[in-house]
């Protein structure tokens, strides 16, 4: 839990800043049978990012990275909207979109696990080509659909709660179950920690890697449906643009190392919420929205610095000289002899 401390503090600080500028920020109301409130909005608008970040966490834990999720978001939305606009039926459209996304994810996984291409490059291929593919599906147009059932995914409510939040909770629960209740998490951490040693321990690393990339793409696919459903249209060019970067940020802020190995799903959710809250905060404190990116840059830098061991050493070192000597930390230093 100690490694979640900083992300939680940052999130809490951001929320408090909001409370100062917007006194009613923490209030949640029930209006017309729907939950309303700024906190609910953060969750609702942050839902696609949380989903993409969850998939990304597992990919990063295997020592990989998936740059293609943004393109997959666009493909998913594009294909679903195209199908719906051609009256193919909602269920078929969603199934087809998610099926294609999973397939594309498995393709990424195949390139990484079986062909042995570096993840950042393997997924760069689909990141570049996928945008083109999404535009190919929509023929460069923005497809608008009008299907109330489809609207539910991203913009609807179920039992007073925004449907998107329910989807996130369900996906999170499934992910936690697969990784922590079942043994997937340990095997992922093992593969990410040392792939060759894992193979010699009898772990089917290839299968796990393919599965993880497919899962990340599936998550991105669901996020894509949410985004296009929310605006009732598909934009192959702009849907999910740069969401992969936000997702990677969320994972890193959440305390999972980009080098692979140990991962924290809770940290990732908090990381994604930090990013979403930041956007909300900028609107609520009246800073021009153009500067969102500036603040994002500052927060990213701050969080990364705080998490950097070298930075903490340097800061503490300076303090250590001015103040009386600190008691010996419980940190273990490996003494190699």
């Amino acid at each position: 839990m100690r490694r979640l401390l900083w992300p939680i503090l940052v999130l809490a600080a951001l929320l408090l800043v909001n409370l100062i500028f917007t006194p009613g920020f923490f209030s949640i109301q029930l209006r017309e049978g729907h939950l309303y409130g700024s906190l609910i909005d953060i969750l609702r608008f942050g839902a696609p990012l949380i989903l993409v970040s969850l998939g990304m966490t597992l990919v990063i834990a295997t020592g990989g990275i998936d740059l293609s999720v943004g393109s997959i978001v666009a493909i998913s939305g594009a294909l679903a909207c195209l199908q719906i606009s051609q009256d193919q039926g909602l269920f078929a459209a969603v199934a087809l979109a998610l099926g294609l996304c999973t397939l594309l994810g498995a393709w990424n996984g195949f390139l990484v696990a079986a062909v042995g291409i570096q993840p950042i490059i393997a997924t760069l291929i689909l990141m570049v080509a996928g945008r083109g593919l999404a535009q190919l599906i929509t023929d460069g147009q923005i497809i608008t659909v009008n299907d109330p059932a489809f609207k539910l995914i991203g913009g609807g409510y179920l039992l007073t709660v925004p449907f998107g939040i329910l989807i996130v909770i369900a996906v999170l629960a499934i992910t936690v179950f697969l990784t922590r209740r079942l043994a997937l998490g340990m095997l992922i951490e093992s593969v990410g920690g040392n792939a060759e040693a894992s193979r010699l321990a009898g772990i089917r690393a290839r299968g796990i890697i393919v599965m993880v990339y497919a899962f990340a793409a599936l998550c991105a696919g669901v996020a894509g449906l949410m985004i296009s459903s929310n605006v009732s249209s598909a934009d192959g060019n702009n849907a999910g643009l740069w969401i992969e970067l936000d997702a990677i940020l969320a994972v890193v802020i959440g305390g999972t190392s980009l080098a692979g190995g140990r991962f924290s799903l809770g940290g990732t959710v908090i990381g994604a919420l930090i990013i979403q809250t930041l956007t909300t905060t900028i609107y609520s404190i009246g800073v021009p929205p153009e500067t969102t990116l500036l603040f994002k840059a500052l927060v990213v830098t701050a969080v990364c610095l705080i998490q950097s061991q070298a930075f903490r050493d340097k800061v503490f070192h300076r303090r250590g000289r001015a103040a009386p000597p600190r008691p010996v930390t419980e940190e273990k230093v490996r003494v190699s002899t």
Binding site: V252, L258, L293, L294, A297, V300, A310, F311, K314
Partner: peptide
């Protein structure tokens, strides 16, 4: 100096 991943630092630079 702080041993942070280039990917993340330059991402922050990109936003900035």
């Amino acid at each position: 100096a702080f041993d942070i991943q280039p990917f993340i630092v330059t991402l922050a630079g990109m936003f900035l």
